[in-house]
Amino acid sequence: MEKKEWSFGTMQAKVKAENGQLTWSLFGNGGSSYPLRSVTGVQYEKGGFMAVMGAFVILVAGGDNRRVQVPSKDASAQIVADINNYIAAYHQAQQTPVPKPTSSIADELTKLANLRDAGVLTEQEFQTQKARVLG
C-alpha cells in the first residue's frame, strides 16, 4: 500500500504508515513503530470537560497498546477514523488471495501432446490426461 501520513496539528504529533509499519512521533522525535499486521486499530479518547488534550491509542495484538497525547478536537477523531480505514484496507489486502495464473484448455492439451511426443507420456496416459482436461 502507499505511504500515508497524518498530522494532529499541534505538538507535531504525527502518525505514518509505510513499508508495513505504523509509526507515531511527537515533537518531531521518533516514537514507536509497530508492524501493521499486528495493529488491530486505533482509538481516540477525547479529554474530559474543558480538557485540551485527548489520547490517541494504537491497539496492538497482544495488548502492547500505546497511548499518545493529541489535541482534544473534532479533527483528531476524523484523523483516527481515516487511520482505521487505512488499517482495515491493509488487512483486507493481506487476506486477498493472489489468483493463480490460468492456462487455457488449448495450452494444457499442447503441453500434454509435447510430453507424449517427447516420450514422457504413453498414448494411453495422454488420452487419460486429455479426458481430464476436457472434463
Rank of each mutant, 00 (worst) to 15 (best):
4 K>H: 03
6 W>G: 04
7 S>V: 13
8 F>P: 00
10 T>G: 10
10 T>L: 09
11 M>H: 12
12 Q>R: 14
13 A>F: 03
14 K>L: 02
14 K>S: 03
15 V>H: 02
15 V>I: 15
15 V>K: 12
16 K>Y: 02
17 A>M: 11
17 A>Y: 00
17 A>E: 01
18 E>V: 07
21 Q>L: 07
21 Q>S: 04
22 L>V: 11
25 S>V: 06
26 L>W: 01
26 L>Y: 09
26 L>D: 04
26 L>M: 11
27 F>V: 05
28 G>P: 03
28 G>T: 10
28 G>N: 04
29 N>F: 13
31 G>Q: 02
31 G>M: 00
32 S>E: 12
33 S>P: 05
33 S>C: 09
34 Y>K: 15
35 P>F: 02
35 P>T: 02
37 R>L: 13
38 S>W: 01
38 S>L: 11
38 S>M: 09
38 S>P: 05
38 S>T: 15
39 V>F: 00
39 V>P: 03
40 T>K: 12
40 T>F: 00
41 G>A: 07
42 V>Y: 00
43 Q>T: 11
44 Y>G: 01
46 K>C: 03
46 K>Y: 02
48 G>W: 06
48 G>P: 03
49 F>T: 07
50 M>R: 03
51 A>G: 04
51 A>N: 13
52 V>F: 15
53 M>T: 14
56 F>I: 08
56 F>E: 02
56 F>L: 13
57 V>H: 00
58 I>Y: 01
58 I>N: 02
59 L>I: 08
61 A>R: 06
61 A>N: 12
64 D>R: 15
64 D>Y: 03
65 N>T: 10
70 V>M: 01
72 S>T: 02
72 S>P: 04
73 K>P: 00
75 A>K: 13
76 S>K: 00
77 A>F: 03
77 A>T: 08
78 Q>W: 02
79 I>E: 06
80 V>P: 00
80 V>R: 01
80 V>A: 11
80 V>D: 09
81 A>G: 05
81 A>L: 12
83 I>K: 07
84 N>G: 05
85 N>F: 04
89 A>Q: 09
90 Y>I: 07
92 Q>A: 14
92 Q>G: 08
93 A>P: 11
95 Q>C: 08
96 T>D: 14
97 P>G: 09
98 V>F: 09
99 P>M: 09
100 K>I: 14
102 T>Y: 13
103 S>N: 12
104 S>N: 04
105 I>P: 03
106 A>E: 15
110 T>P: 01
110 T>C: 05
113 A>S: 12
114 N>D: 15
115 L>H: 07
116 R>W: 10
117 D>Q: 11
117 D>E: 14
119 G>Y: 15
119 G>V: 14
119 G>R: 14
119 G>K: 09
120 V>P: 08
121 L>I: 08
121 L>Q: 09
122 T>W: 10
124 Q>R: 15
124 Q>Y: 13
125 E>L: 08
125 E>N: 07
125 E>D: 15
125 E>H: 04
126 F>P: 00
126 F>C: 13
129 Q>F: 08
129 Q>V: 05
130 K>G: 06
132 R>H: 14
133 V>L: 10
134 L>K: 12
135 G>V: 06
135 G>R: 13
